[in-house]
Design a protein around this nucleic acid. Sequence first.
DNA 1: ACCTGAACACCGTTCAAGT
DNA 2: ACCTGAACACCGTTCAAGT
Lengths: 239, 239
Amino acid sequence: MDAVGDPNVAKPRAPLSRDRVLRCAISYADVNGIESLSMRGLANELDVVPMALYKHVASKEDLLDGMVEIIVGEIEQTPGTGHWEHDVRLRILAARASLLRHSWARAVLESRTAMTPAMLSYLDGLSGLFLAGGLSVDLTHHVMHALGNRMWGFSQELFAATPRSDTESFNAQRDALPAHHPNLAAIARAALQGDPDSGRGPGCDAQAEFEFALDLILDGVQTRHTDRWTPRRQGRRSR
Amino acid sequence: MDAVGDPNVAKPRAPLSRDRVLRCAISYADVNGIESLSMRGLANELDVVPMALYKHVASKEDLLDGMVEIIVGEIEQTPGTGHWEHDVRLRILAARASLLRHSWARAVLESRTAMTPAMLSYLDGLSGLFLAGGLSVDLTHHVMHALGNRMWGFSQELFAATPRSDTESFNAQRDALPAHHPNLAAIARAALQGDPDSGRGPGCDAQAEFEFALDLILDGVQTRHTDRWTPRRQGRRSR
DNA sequence: ACCTGAACACCGTTCAAGT
DNA sequence: ACCTGAACACCGTTCAAGT
């Protein structure tokens, strides 16, 4: 009747489409890591000759653009309530949730230089939350810059989760820390003591760090806003 | 007497060293762009067989680590005066100055996952400025995260300086901006009106944006510091 | 007109053969 | 013991030959 049980019959492979290519690339990167994603490997995954991809994707760069496009497009459009601090916080945490689902998303997004429609929409929506809260256009502009890649939900990693070097050199480095880097050693010690139950070794609570930094910035913006801050008027404040 | 004027005599090529390899790679990337830096091309630049590089550099990853290592190592060790806001500001602007000298530095630094000695030293020195100013170890820890890649002197680029796509699609995108992205359009319009003399098209004053964001964060830290902020005590503030 | 195998011009890195 | 040419196992992309 059909091809079930007969491995020699070609699978009725679904026709290729840009969306199918991009989604396959995403799950391939999820499973195998972004560094092992190649046009040839992806074509193989799709049971297709490499050249067939170029009908739906202009180049590998375009493929990567399309991959982040999908993920950014999936960011939840959290509702605006008119309380801009709350609204912005919610929206950015939604972005964080979307992007954290793919371990490679941060690196790829940071490597992109093109602006895609979904990225523009997200940025426009986020700016709109500030403007709806009554912030001036100028202040909103500067705040968007100030958020940095935090607007995508990223917090700086001080020490990579998995040091690339082998364990012995990692241990050597850690043992040498107190002598040569007393300040970092103190911080690391306090972080480890403070979170004895997290049990993640030298890591930090990324979510807590993210929210601390986000609130720090939003508070500063609130201050600038109520102070009716304007650009080029005040110059640098004395300190 | 010597080889001057005789092109057939082999140049007495300086013996290779890790430092010479790294510095040649840096200036090669400065001139030709990081994307066209290859082990083979670098070897060719040094009049050497590709394999010879592997005596001084374990891999291309190690080469890139070494390149940022040199640049980070060149960050000026600005003096500490005990006024931590001033000291931190100065040190971070010094980092910015060093890294901005190489257009590829930001991308490469952000792609690194390993911690190198020079990076550790810089981080230790920067933390030390906060601690010397009387900030608690905990607050210093969180602030280091909050600075994000701003601690290296980077500000978020909202729109890449040179859109990768061709000019016509760029124009099409810009013309479609007001209709679909009213908030971004308002920001772009204000930015262009506000800086009529900068004449850099749709760009922003990166230095001004950087200092705005840096001061925003440092002010917030000052507030947390004088409020004797401690972690896990206050949880989220109501809003 | 469409599709695709082979080819092109590269990579980073290994390895064995030569000195 | 040291050095290195050739080779290996890939890349992204072009292109001409086949249907």
